[in-house]
Design a protein around this nucleic acid. Structure first.
Lengths: 336, 336
DNA sequence: TTGTAGGCGTTATCAA
DNA sequence: TTGATAACGCCTACAA
């Protein structure tokens, strides 16, 4: 058995009350006593039982994040960075991070959310990769459960979130490509259920309008946010009678897959065809050629989300809605 | 307030005892009663308080993993896949996964381990990226705390682990390169405190011996397991009077960085220089050119580790030590 | 400044 | 087959 507050009290011949208060930094305990308590507690390797504390205080000091992906093929650096941000920030507030995995809109996802909420396993939840109609947001909202999100839904729900203005970003990206002489610009998107697809596609289309390019539906195609998805989608684009001279991926992975497809078709990326993505995580810098991308500061966003969530948990009436502009990072994949 | 077992009992006009037992599937409760209980519990959205259950049962139904990295630059797909595996397998056993981040051997790391163990926050811990002298293994071992590891240490400690035979793998890799006509083979490694560096370097050296190549210390250089580290290390290699004709990266990220450096030097990877890595996560397939690598099934290994850990937690005397052979995946980066 | 005691929500022991 | 009751370890109002 681990050492409990009782053991410490017994050793000190004090009541557990005093020990508890000394350790929690109350000021109604004699300095000398406190010193002794702290000293002995450390010696004995005492740390309060999390379960007991949770039960008593009705809070868990933990937040949760459910990775909206599962199975063998999930290696989006976005999630790594996001989790690192969540973890680092949580830790610095003495909160723990609970992580689980479930495919979007799967029964498994639903189960996990219900369990976490009903069992009071976490004090709050971080959402990412929002959907236009997002049952998670609805569910948490209905249950008055604290949550924050990376991105918004199209439902009328009030919750704090951070939004990267991908629409504006993609407009800029199209402009950039046009300036480099590209006019036949394809877009490889994602499932329409995701908000990100809605916004980015719209940004792409606005970009075309801004530059007086007629929208060609055959240049818009659906991927699945993965490298393989981008690869396969790009191959189909190259089959077109009039193939594109530029490809925008809904995210970096998609763009990376597209670059591979281009190369297999004997095209030189950055010359024969321009390719660009979105996210700007570390890896985009090291592709061959380096990938032009819209950078969102995933790590920092994650940290901020945790801060917002903790404020919300602490009862502060956070009504925040932070809009961030992505940064266009021009590299060789659209160069020349 | 969330609904408690008392609420359910009151509604049913039963004792909380009966409700508890009905829900936990004890057989000393009338079938009819059980049905009613389950029915009503679901209706009311009841789920047992995790904290209370933990306190009573003295177990948490959670396991922990501390990502041995922190800060902005952590995007190793190895961790994504590893976490996905841990998460999926945990979930399927109704366990939760607690995740934190801390740089190897940092005070922060120590704090987290102590907190998790002393506060009984998790029932067991998964370790990865082992060190030759690993205080984590020692600490957990000393405290009789259940843990399993991906890789071994050089201490005399007994614990279940899965080991990928990187040494054999790197021997095969060297052989492969030699067969492709490379003889000046460099190795970009990692900090010597990691077991992986020890093993892989040895495999590299054995490979040289096997093929009668004299070991040249100037071709061995230290990276930091990141793309940037590989990039910078490779640049230094290219400054040598007699630069290498092949580079082996201690992991894929290192190799990816090296490829970038090669390209900047005007070298064609797969022709002017061969590059190979280790890990074989999804991204290695989509580099330009695709990367030759030694694949370890990170996702599956993670799942198996969880199984071993849960068995250990359940009290089964697991003395397992699983050795897996990595698989050489030949792609264009060493081709031609 | 310190101690007593009640209760957080469960599960498990024992009795009915 | 069901119910009363005692912990699990901690925090905190209240008493001393």
């Amino acid at each position: 058995m681990a050492v409990t507050i009782r053991d410490v009290a017994k050793r000190l011949r004090l009541s557990i009350t005093t020990v508890s208060r000394a350790l929690d930094g109350y000021d109604d305990v004699a300095d000398k006593t406190r010193e002794r308590v702290i000293q002995v507690a450390r010696e004995m390797g005492y740390a309060p039982s999390r379960a007991a504390r949770q039960l008593r205080r009705q809070q868990t000091d933990a937040i949760g994040y459910i990775i909206p992906a599962s199975g063998n093929h999930f290696t989006d650096p976005f999630f790594s960075e996001f989790i690192a941000g969540l973890g680092d920030e949580s830790t610095s507030h003495h909160f723990d991070l609970l992580v689980s995995t479930a495919p979007p809109d799967s029964p498994a996802e639903r189960e996990i959310f219900e369990r976490w909420v009903q069992s009071r396993l976490v004090d709050g939840i971080v959402l990412s990769r929002m959907r236009l109609r997002d049952w998670r947001a609805k569910y948490l909202s209905d249950n008055d459960f604290p949550f924050v999100a990376h991105g918004h839904t199209h439902q009328r729900l009030k919750y704090p979130y951070i939004e990267v203005d991908a629409r504006a970003g993609f407009e800029i990206l199209v402009k950039h490509l046009v300036e480099r002489g590209r006019r036949r610009i394809a877009y490889i998107g994602a499932s329409p259920r995701f908000t990100l697809q809605y916004d980015r596609l719209q940004g792409y289309q606005n970009g075309l309008v801004n530059t007086n390019i007629t929208f060609d539906p055959s240049l818009v195609i659906e991927g699945d946010l993965s490298r393989t998805g981008g690869y396969e989608a790009a191959l189909r684009l190259f089959e077109l009678a009039k193939p594109p001279t530029a490809i925008i991926g809904v995210n970096d992975l998609t763009a990376i897959g597209a670059m591979r497809a281009a190369r297999e078709k004997g095209l030189v990326v950055g010359k024969d065809i321009a390719v660009a993505g979105y996210d700007g995580t570390d890896d985009s810098e090291h592709t061959q050629p380096p990938l032009t991308t819209l950078r969102q500061q995933v790590y920092d966003i994650a940290r901020q989300l945790v801060q917002m969530l903790l404020a919300r948990i602490a009862g502060e009436l956070v009504e925040s809605k932070l809009i961030i502009q992505p940064e266009l990072v021009v590299r060789e994949s659209t160069g020349g």
